[in-house]
Each structure stands twice: as C-alpha cells, then as structure tokens.
Design a protein around this nucleic acid. Structure first.
Lengths: 327, 327
DNA sequence: GGACCACCTACAAACGTTTACCTATGAGTT
DNA sequence: AACTCATAGGTAAACGTTTGTAGGTGGTCC
C-alpha cells in the first residue's frame, strides 16, 4: 500500500538505483532524469523507509535522550533545546524518562541503542562503571556529569554554590544550612564540592542536612529541620524545594528575608514570580542542551574526534529572598 | 561488529529461524532448545535489529508525540504520562516540538510517520482538513481537539470556564474580563464556548480581550487593558499569564483578591505557591496523557475499533486570588 | 576508424530479521 | 505394518533501501 522506491522507478521508467541516487546523491544523475524522478516522487508522496535505509547504512538519523524526570522543568528546559538543535540538524529525538531509577536508565539506553545513532544521557544515579560499559556499544554524551573518556556538557554548579556562599557571607551570615538533594546525584556532589571550597575560603559555618526529595514536599519537610539548626540562611538544592521552604516559613510566620535568607539553584520561571522572588543560581540549561547535541553530532561525524568536557558558567541571580541576617 | 541473529544461530547450532522463534514465539520451539538459544543470546548480549524487524513486520514499536511547546509544563505534564504509559506497554516515544508553528507540526508528523506505529498530536494551530489528510497515512490520536473520524483525549475546558464564571458570579461579580489566548487555538475556542454558555446562564457581563501571547509577558500586557475595562474579576487563559497579571497588579498596588479577583487554567505547580495562591481550573493532564496512549494502542491493536472522543472532567480549585468584589 | 574517456544508468548483492512452507521424526490408531 | 498427526526445526523468500560494479552511449584524440 505505501509507495516504495520501486513505484517511483516504474513510473519514471528508470531503475531503483537511479531513483535512490536522484534523492541522495543528486550530482550522480543527469539533471533532466533527476528532475523527472523528483517530480514523480513528489507527486506520489514518496518517503524512503527509514527502516530499510538504516538497515543498509547503519545510520538512523535519530538521537536518544534519557532523563531522570520529565516533570521537572529543569530537565524539560534541556529537552526543549536538545530537540530544537537536533531538529535543526535533521535528527529525530527519542525520549526516555527513567523516573530517577538507575536500572531504568541503563535499560533505556540499551533499548534505544539500536534505533539511534547516539544517546544523550542525563543520569545522576547510575554508576561510572555502568556508563563506561554503555559507552562501549553506543556513542554517548553526558549531561551534567564527568566520566573520563566520554564527552560531556557540564554546568558549573560548584561555582554557583561558591557564589551563593560568598553572597550570604558578604551579607553577614555566619551559620548557613544546605538542604541536600539526592545523595548520589552528581550535581549534588558538585554542589557539596563547591560548598567545601567556599567554606574554606570564607570561613562560614555550613550545616548539610538531608538528603531530601528534590521536590516541593522535600522543601517543606526540610524547612523545620533547618530552623532547628538555628541558622540565618538556607541554601536549597533547587528552586522547587526552595518554594516548599518558603511556604513553610510563611505558615510559621517567619519573615523571609528579614528573619531568614534563602537561596537555591535552577532559576525556573517561578523563581521570578514567587513572593518574595527567589535569589537563585541560574543554570545554563538552554546552552547545555544545544552543546550536548553539538558534542554528540561531532562525535558521530568523526568518531576519532577528541573527547570534550565543556563546562558552562552559572550565575547567581540576587532577588528578594536574601538580605542581612537579623541583629 | 554488532552481534546478529546469525552469530547466535551458529553458536547454538540451529538455524536463524529457530533463534527468531525462540525469541518471539517461544512455544513453537522445544524447551531445551529454547533455553539453550536464550542463554547464548543473553551471553552474547544479542539485541534484534529494530530496523530489520520493522522492515519485515511493518511495526516499529514506537509512537510519536507532537506538541506545540516543550517549555510549557502543561504539555510536559502530558508528555511525562505519555512516555510512562508507552514505556509500560513496551513502546518507545519519539518527540517533536513544533514551537507553535502549524507547518512544522504537519512536517513533524509526516517525517515521523514511517518510524512510528502511530502519532499523538497535540496541535491547536493546524487545520481540520490537514489533520484529516494526515490521518489518511498515519494512525492518529488527538489531544485536546475534536475532529470527526479521529480518536481523541479531551479535557473539558468549557466546563472549567463554566465553573469559573459560576464561582465569580456567586461571589457577586458582574463585570468580568477574559484574557484570551491564541485566537485559533482549539482550547481557547473551547473556553470561549464555555464562556458564552455560562454568560447566558448567569447573566454576568464578560468582556473578551486579546488575543495575548500565552506567556508571562502576555499577562503583564493584558493586565492594564483589563483594568481599563473597569472589571472586578479577570479570567486568564492560563496560569502563566495569570502570574503576569498578578505581578503587574502588585506593581500597580492593586490588592488581589480584595480589589480584583483572578482565576485561570492549568493548575501548574506554581499556582499553589504564588502569593496569593491562584484560583484555577485543574486540567487532567496526567489522565489525558495516559488515555491518549491507550486510545492509540487500542487503535493499533484493532484498526477497526471504534473512534472514541473521550472527555475528561476539569475541576475549579478555589484558592487565594478570588473573593467578593469591592463594595 | 579505433582507442580512450566521461557520463549515465542498470544489475544485483547486501543489510538482519520474520514467516510461509516443507521435511523429518516419532507417537498413536487401526 | 501402514496410516495419520503433532511437533520441531530447517530453507528460502521477502521487506525497501544503498552502493559496488559493470555496461552502454557518444565524444575526443590520434
């Protein structure tokens, strides 16, 4: 029923080879033949079968993207840009949501492997050794994670943490709580790394609490624990948790920022529209999405091309939730 | 280099047919042979080539999803559930973001068509006739849009609008503004339909303004226009616009809800965490995503199965932005 | 006028599966 | 003992492309 290359060939009174070449290597066929063939292909609404094509060429024209949570705007920000850049380059995008389960992440990559030319993996949970194993069979590029031998698009969250602590320290805060996210998440580790460095440099006291679920409810829960620590400022793992903290403080009649300062990470839409607006570290999700695709495509174009770990800068955006500590 | 069915067959000393059957129709092969074959396939890490398989069977095991904006949490809410349900049923998901451009939407569907078994289309912009044309070559299921002859998962936004107007009317509002979204968007039309019905029933006066961009900036812009209309309540096209309205009202020192009431649609995360919290119509995105997949899969299982238009209920969630009009 | 060449186009193999059809084996029936 | 029949597994065609190789045409050069 669907129209094949043979139908076009018959109508154009040429061989299938000529039709194929007219479409994929135009200079190899006489111009008048080519135009006749193309006209007929167009008239018939002919579309080459990707399955047949990929069977013979070994290329699919697709890339895969595996993420821990499609409900999180941080990841969909990356997704949006990945899809845009891929589309621009003529690639389709396969999507997989692992629901934060490392086992699912691995299985997703494996099941995608044969239908895509390469995979973008954003997987905080999975182990380095597993990633290396996956990379043996698939062209991989990592997002927000550094594993040797595999290209990666990174965001400098450690730097963001440093900026946050410097900011709070400059305001006069001396006791700060960090509400930690998932313990083995890569970006959580990065933040802790930045934290230690900044602590050393500024001499402020930072209490790490948690881990908490990186969600609204996690923030609500963390808020009370942080208060019990008697701190004057809180750094939340991400904006969503910060909103939870904010809501809980409001309930407990604690004035942010006058009694307590609050910062976080991500700078999602609502960071700018909550009340008070959130001081937060903007993550370069857009650039990271595009960069990841570019890294993958250049790896595909030339598998011998060098492995690149490129880190994109973060920026602390000071808004309404931070101020000097109470006297 | 990659291991094929032939490698497994050779090692197991059986024909490729037997390997194929051991994997896809186990009861057709003797248990001891089957187990031997499976063990070897497993040991070799054999994965059938989807291209070859799909070439012969005509099935891909994938579905496509085309949406207007992956940055909008409303759509990614659907996406998350689509992917989850599809994964559950062993299907992969191809994603396309049209950036609200109808031409891109159509092209995305066409270019996906051959690599998926069916497409879920969430496309407010494209014309009915184009959809019908697409449905001729592809198994389609629509999201939030009703076209005869094509199954659809719908959300009752008209009902949501009715609930909103009844709520405002009950509070005593008599002059209301509706901030319209994209003019030819299907859900905007639905909302207008609900609006007319509710106006007729309750007798309140509703001024439709716009269209506005369904974004934060659109809300900011719309806010001033609405105030000029001298209304006591505003119904925004969606939450994001409502946040824009809220911000602008705050700037102009207008007290919500005491001087002005505000409602909207979607009930995204931040509706519950803005200040004041948003009264809004919750859309059943989760259920809609799952339903859409189910409709598509049942259509794929039996192309003769009846076309279904299933409408999911919406619910007005009353929070902080609505109250009685000023005396 | 024959040799060489450039240019087109056709032929056919190959990609990795699934599946219709056929054969071989052995058990059960008469 | 001959027949039927179920079961297991092999053979080979088919799916729709791409691409290496070969053939055929007409022009240019000696």
């Amino acid at each position: 029923m669907p129209v094949t290359i043979r139908d076009v060939a018959r109508e154009a009174k040429v061989s299938v080879a000529t039709v194929s070449r007219a479409l994929s290597s135009p200079h190899q066929v006489n111009q008048v033949t080519r135009e006749r063939v193309l006209a007929i292909a167009d008239r018939f609404g002919y579309r080459p079968s990707p399955a047949a094509r990929s069977l013979i060429t070994g290329k699919t024209g697709n890339i895969g993207l595996v993420m821990p949570d499609l409900a999180n705007p941080f990841f969909t920000g990356v997704l949006k840009n990945v899809q845009a850049r891929a589309h621009q380059s003529g690639y389709g995008v396969f999507i997989g949501d692992s629901d934060e389960d490392p086992a699912v992440e691995e299985e997703l990559v494996r099941s995608m492997a044969k239908q895509v030319d390469g995979v973008l993996l954003c997987s905080p949970g999975i182990k380095d050794s597993q990633i290396t194993a996956l990379a043996a069979n698939t062209t991989l590029v990592l997002l927000n994670r550094r594993v040797r031998g595999i290209s990666a698009a990174l965001m400098d969250s450690a730097g963001g943490m440093r900026q946050s602590i410097e900011h709070l320290s400059a305001l006069g805060h001396r006791r700060i709580a960090f509400l930690s996210g998932p313990r083995n998440s890569w970006s959580n580790k990065q933040r802790l790394r930045g934290l230690r460095a900044a602590v050393e440099q500024t001499g402020v006291e930072v209490h790490t609490l948690g881990p908490f679920a990186p969600r609204y409810s996690g923030g609500v829960q963390a808020a009370d624990l942080a208060l019990a620590e008697n701190v004057t400022a809180i750094i939340a793992y991400n904006d969503i948790m910060a909103l939870g903290v904010l809501a809980r403080m409001h309930e407990r009649d604690i004035d942010v920022p006058n009694e307590l300062s609050l910062t976080s990470f991500d700078d999602l839409v609502y960071a700018a529209v909550s009340a008070p607006t959130l001081t937060t570290v903007a993550m370069p999700v857009d650039a990271a999405g595009r960069l990841a695709v570019d890294l993958l495509l250049s790896r595909l174009a030339d598998p011998g091309s060098p492995v690149v770990h490129q880190e994109l800068p973060t920026r602390l955006i000071v808004r309404g939730t931070t101020g000097p500590p109470p006297k």
